[in-house]
Design a protein around this nucleic acid. Structure first.
Length: 364
DNA sequence: AAAACGGGGGC
DNA sequence: GCCCCAGTTTT
């Protein structure tokens, strides 16, 4: 383990530290746990939905989505039966849309193979789409009271600082080793609360970058990172690679007040979501009009809508926009403003253009 | 093991 | 405006 989790803590000191943490941590959690909707009634379904939403996403961002989602789709069966457009609309703005598609795959599998209810068995959970080691551990421990670790970024940060470990937490083997460490520290009672307490500590006290609030930390007295003052630059992560740039011309094509939208391919970036007409490269008005004509559109007037930039994890989109009023109906489907707002999911990458929809100038 | 996959918040 | 955050699947 020492080879993977680099710490200057002696094995005996490390065991001692791990044995000493659960009691103050759980006491602190009992005092300080935030009141959150999925904690009120932690059914397996609600825990699952919340855990998937919370992947890569902060609590504050999830809050407006959770109640709406579980009200619209109250159980596994309802989720399995939902149309994809409704799913994407419920998820619009949360990002990582494969999460909700996998959730539906998972719901269908649960309906087919587990009697319509999420299984309580960790290994069975792990086999389901969209459920990896973290989510399986979270559901098994929080909803079913079983003793499994749920190692997210918060837990990695807390543990790395607690034992003053500078191993690269992005490495799979390091995550695995921290999972084993967490399990060794986990009490046999309240495993779900123990996991949630670790994450809560990372989210509210043991903060990234900005100074951790060590004076308020229930583990402050036993924290090796704090004692050594190494916690400021922990956890360690390997540097990330550069994003690639993409240039697009975004055309809001309009005919008789309705807007042309195209559905993106089912798989890949923003799969299945709707977008305005997109042409590769930054096109001048002249060139844009030419390409639209070549694609069979009868453009009456073309007006600039300004530039926009959107940054994904791995790509930067630089966009130039145009409003194209057509003089004849296009082949592809048109949508009213109301349909776009109420039913269709348009990625927030296009927010600069979507925002202008209600105030667009009338056709000349 | 590395890349694909969004969007929001802090400074 | 730039930097940081981070589970699961696919390659």
């Amino acid at each position: 383990m020492d080879e993977i989790l680099h710490t200057d803590l002696a094995p005996g000191e490390c065991r001692e530290l791990l044995a000493a943490m659960s009691q103050p941590l759980l006491q602190w959690y009992d005092r300080s746990a935030r009141v959150l909707p999925w904690r009120e009634r932690p059914t397996p379904y609600r825990v699952w939905v919340s855990e998937i939403m919370l992947q890569q996403t902060r609590v504050a961002a999830v809050l407006p989505y959770f109640e709406r989602f579980v009200t619209a789709l109250p159980d596994e069966q309802a989720l399995a039966d939902a149309p994809q457009d409704q799913l994407l609309k419920l998820w619009e703005g949360l990002g990582y849309y494969n999460r909700v598609k996998n959730m539906q795959k998972c719901a269908r599998e649960v309906v087919a193979c587990h009697g319509g209810r999420l299984p309580g068995d960790y290994c069975a959970l792990l086999k389901l789409p969209g459920i990896g080691a973290y989510t399986a551990g979270a559901i098994a421990s929080i909803a079913f009271g079983q003793r499994f670790p749920a190692v997210d970024g918060n837990v990695l940060r807390v543990m790395a600082r607690l034992i003053s470990c500078d191993s690269d937490i992005l490495q799979p083997r390091v995550k695995k080793a921290f999972g084993e460490l967490v399990l060794s520290a986990m009490p046999h009672h309240r495993p779900g609360d123990f996991n949630q307490a670790m994450m809560e500590l990372g989210a509210t006290i043991c903060l990234p970058n900005t100074l951790p609030l060590c004076p308020s930390c229930p583990l402050g007295d036993i924290c090796r990172g704090r004692a050594l003052q190494t916690h400021h630059h922990l956890p360690h992560k390997a540097p990330k690679k550069a994003k690639r740039n993409e240039q697009w011309t975004v055309v809001v094509a309009r005919w008789q007040g309705r807007i042309l939208l195209q559905r993106r391919p089912e798989s890949g970036l923003l799969g299945g979501m709707y977008q305005y007409l997109c042409l590769p490269g930054h096109l001048g008005a002249e060139e844009c009009q030419q390409q639209l004509a070549a694609q069979g559109f009868c453009v009456h007037t073309l007006r600039p809508l300004g530039a926009a930039k959107h940054i994904f994890t791995h790509i930067v989109w630089q966009m130039e926009g145009y409003l194209a009023d057509l003089s004849a109906p296009p082949q592809e489907p048109l949508y009213t403003l109301e349909e776009i707002e109420e039913q269709l999911s348009v990625p927030s990458a296009f927010a600069h253009y979507t925002r202008q929809l209600p105030t667009l100038p009338l056709p000349l």
